[in-house]
């Protein structure tokens, strides 16, 4: 059926709205990506077409920037945080979901409320503690503190996935003599695996993006990519082509992971909000 003039106008407006919105959303990232492939003299130019170079990506791994160890620190800290948080959170989420007791809702809201505590509150006493224990500037210190925000979030999220499973499917296993851990491992876990993976990805991204703890607790050995990025201010000012290349290095894993699991990612983001 042919569109009327009025419908054509609104259709046009809708696509114009799309165009404007996606320009607003994607352009800053697009421009940063473009800058990472520019040579220094083009970095400040408005050119969209230029001879691309990979030298910026090579430079950030060389002196004086040496992003290699920083990348290693970020990978180790993020993976270690997830490796500790997800198993513990899965067990806790399972118990919170299946065990009924008075005050359970208040407890769950308090788990969520823990996310309201500003990171600087958490880091302050630990800064003093780690200083006395000589743990400042170590990856262990970062893993411990990253757990403070990854763990409650993972418990909340995984519980949502377990709540969606009817407890009846576990009854047969309990009748057959399985203990609760066996039930979780052999019955529940395979069914909620997409949720657990999504929570792990969220935890990884949160740890990977973490900035304040690393800024306060590290200065040389355990510096992560996000803090290293801010170190690209030199006496010549900010070298934007290098800054953009380093930003790309930080963005690529997040984009890749998010894109791979985009379906679960979106359902994970809306978990708890839409019921």
């Amino acid at each position: 059926m042919a569109m009327t003039r009025d419908e054509k106008f609104w259709e046009g407006m809708r696509w114009a709205g799309f165009g404007a919105t996606f320009l607003f959303m994607a352009f800053p990232i697009f421009w940063m990506i473009l800058t990472s492939f520019k040579v220094a003299r083009d970095a400040y130019s408005t050119k969209v077409f230029f001879s691309p170079t990979l030298n910026n990506f090579i430079s950030i791994f060389q002196d004086p920037y040496n992003f290699g160890p920083l990348l290693f620190n970020s990978v180790v800290v993020s993976f270690s945080t997830v490796a500790v948080a997800i198993p513990a959170a899965t067990c806790a989420a399972y118990a919170f979901s299946r065990y009924q007791f008075k005050g359970k809702n208040a407890l769950m809201v308090s788990v969520l409320s823990s996310q309201f505590v500003p990171p600087v509150v958490v880091v302050l006493p630990f800064f003093i503690l780690f200083k006395n224990l000589h743990l400042l500037d170590t990856r262990l210190a970062l893993v411990i503190l990253n757990l403070s925000f990854v763990l409650p979030f993972a418990v909340w999220m995984i519980k949502g996935f377990i709540d969606a499973l009817p407890p009846d499917i576990e009854s047969a296993a309990v009748v057959d003599g399985c203990n609760r851990f066996q039930v979780l491992r052999h019955i529940t876990l395979p069914l909620i695996m997409p949720g657990v993976v999504t929570s792990a990805v969220f935890g990884f991204i949160q740890s990977w993006n973490e900035f304040l703890f690393a800024l306060i607790l590290t200065n040389q050995k355990a510096v992560t990519l996000t803090v290293g990025l801010m170190g690209l201010h030199t006496d010549k000012g900010i070298l934007w082509e290098h800054m953009a290349a380093a930003s790309m290095l930080i963005m690529i894993p997040i984009f890749a992971i998010s894109f791979t699991i985009r379906e679960y990612f979106i359902s994970g983001l809306t978990m708890g909000a839409v019921k």
């Binding site: 800053p28 990232i29 421009w31 993006n209 800054m243 963005m251 998010s258 979106i266």
Partner: peptide, 26 residues
Amino acid sequence: RGPLIFATLLPFIITPVVGSLSIYWL
């Protein structure tokens, strides 16, 4: 819808320091 949603989500999943820098840089 899928690709649109993912493209729209990019500013949210990007590292805040990088996001701030990308606006600052513009």
